[in-house]
Simulated scan of single mutants.
Amino acid sequence: AAMELPPSHYPASRAAALAAGFVCYRRGSPGRGLALRAVRWASRQDIDDVGRKYHLELVLEDVLDQDTTVNCTAEVLYHLGNKNVAPDVQFTIEGELKNADEADNIFYNRIKSLEEELVAENIPDSHGKVSPEMEPVLLLARVAAGYVVWQNSTENTKFQFAQIKHVKQVKRSDKYLEFDYMILLHEMVSQEIVPWQMTVLWHPQRGVQVTQDSRQPKHASE
């Protein structure tokens, strides 16, 4: 039987952070980022020989326009004992997400027309500021980080995106944009700041692919 949990309960908030990261990965783009605003309801159920399933009702907000929110129901299944299998996440969004096609295409065309590959670091900066032209680069990192968080979460972790340490565009001969990111994730349970390298491909019609990612030693970000 499912047991209801207080929405602020640690396990509920961990499962919610994972679910929100997964939704951002599946539905986000350089023109649209989604973040967890609130957990409205949560329950947990032990499934014999399988694992633990969390049922969640979430409120997600648009990173660029925090007045825009959508409700989301999600299920997160953590597999028993096997740390190498990513949790199963299923979700349904109620209502419409803001259309990001125009913003995505503007960003795509701008990067494609650069004479030299984009290189940047420390986004947001130490004051929390992001320049408008770096906003899509940051949103793309958040989307890709959603994939990394999904693949590496357990019931005892809660990852949050903190910062792009550096990003470098990689030249390609096909239609995709490729970026090599070093990001910082804040693991809220251990309070560790974890550097993570990600190679990210993106095309407006094809979505985001993280082709390679690896956790880096602590000093890698310095």
Rank of each mutant, 00 (worst) to 15 (best):
A1V: 14
M3G: 12
P7D: 04
P7R: 05
P11K: 09
S13D: 05
A15H: 01
A16N: 05
L18P: 01
A19C: 05
A19W: 06
F22L: 08
V23D: 05
Y25P: 02
R27P: 06
G31M: 00
G33C: 02
R37D: 13
A42Q: 04
Q45A: 08
Q45L: 07
D49M: 10
K53Q: 15
K53G: 00
Y54H: 11
H55F: 12
L56H: 05
L58C: 05
V63P: 01
L64R: 14
D67P: 02
T68M: 13
T69Q: 10
A74C: 09
L77I: 09
L77R: 02
L80Y: 09
N82P: 04
K83C: 10
N84S: 15
V85P: 05
V85L: 13
A86T: 06
I93H: 04
I93Y: 06
E94Q: 14
E94Y: 13
E94V: 12
E96D: 14
K98E: 15
A100H: 10
A100F: 02
A103E: 09
D104N: 15
I106Q: 10
Y108L: 07
Y108H: 03
L114G: 02
L114A: 08
E116L: 13
E116D: 12
E116R: 13
L118N: 02
V119I: 13
V119D: 11
I123F: 04
D125N: 14
D125G: 03
D125A: 02
S126L: 14
S131D: 10
S131L: 10
E133P: 07
L138D: 04
L139Q: 12
A141K: 04
A141W: 01
A145V: 05
Q151E: 15
S153Q: 00
T157L: 01
Q160C: 11
A162Q: 09
A162C: 08
Q163M: 12
K165P: 00
Y176A: 11
D180K: 12
D180G: 06
M188T: 09
V189K: 05
E192A: 12
I193M: 13
V194Q: 11
W196A: 08
W196G: 00
M198G: 04
T199R: 15
W202R: 03
P204K: 00
V208H: 01
V210I: 08
V210G: 07
V210T: 08
T211P: 02
T211R: 07
T211K: 07
S214H: 11
P217Q: 08
P217E: 10
K218E: 12
H219G: 11
E222G: 13
